[in-house]
Simulated scan of single mutants.
Amino acid sequence: MTKSWAAPLLAAVLLAGCGSEEVVTPRDAGVDREILGTWYPWDIPSYVPPGFDADSFPEATVTFKDDGTWTGSDGCNGQGGDYEITADGAFSAGEPGPSTRMGCANVPNATVLHSSTKAAVENGMLVLSANGTTTGRYLREPQASPSPSVSDVDR
């Protein structure tokens, strides 16, 4: 038995997509799309910037590209590598490629990525974790200095 409203509703849904150039699928809405672009470290547990060149912290970045690669900086040294992420946030990053070793904030972005197994974007913040423990949190805007430890911040 067919409901009398089912056929017109189906036709309306099918026609609504006609002429639209961008189709949003569930994959488009996943964390694998949300992480694309540049992120700045905000909190990395156990990271304490060195006394010298700590002002290079705002220069530290991680940029995720849709080709499965990431580039970034620890504050002055270039970094990069590959990564994989699923729409539900399962995450892995290979060993980072070669990097220069100039003295600066030396934010351990590459270590955070390589040790993380899960990624989520929560309230505009990228949260990376492994085994239920936060490995790093990142924001879209540069930060003047690291936040307090994750354990000191309300979740």
Rank of each mutant, 00 (worst) to 15 (best):
S147I: 01
T71V: 12
V23Q: 14
I35P: 01
K65A: 15
D43C: 15
S145E: 15
E59H: 11
A130M: 07
V153I: 15
Y83G: 01
W39Y: 08
S46W: 09
L36Q: 11
E22R: 13
A93H: 02
V107Q: 05
P49S: 05
E34M: 13
A6Q: 15
G103I: 12
L113H: 05
P8Y: 08
F64V: 04
D43K: 13
T25Q: 10
L126P: 04
V13T: 11
V150W: 10
V13M: 13
S73F: 02
G132H: 09
V24L: 14
N123W: 00
P108S: 06
A7S: 13
G37K: 07
Q143P: 03
L139T: 15
G80T: 07
A7L: 13
G17H: 09
Y47V: 08
Y47D: 07
I85E: 02
L15V: 13
H114S: 13
D28G: 14
R155K: 14
M102I: 13
R101T: 14
P49Q: 06
A130K: 13
T38C: 05
E141T: 15
Q79T: 10
R27I: 10
H114I: 00
G89F: 04
S129F: 04
C76W: 02
A7G: 08
S4E: 12
I85D: 01
D74Y: 02
G132N: 11
M102G: 11
W42T: 08
P45C: 08
R155P: 01
K118P: 01
L113I: 05
S145Y: 06
G94L: 08
A90M: 10
A93C: 05
T2A: 14
V13Y: 11
T69P: 06
G89Y: 01
H114R: 15
E122M: 09
W70I: 05
G136P: 08
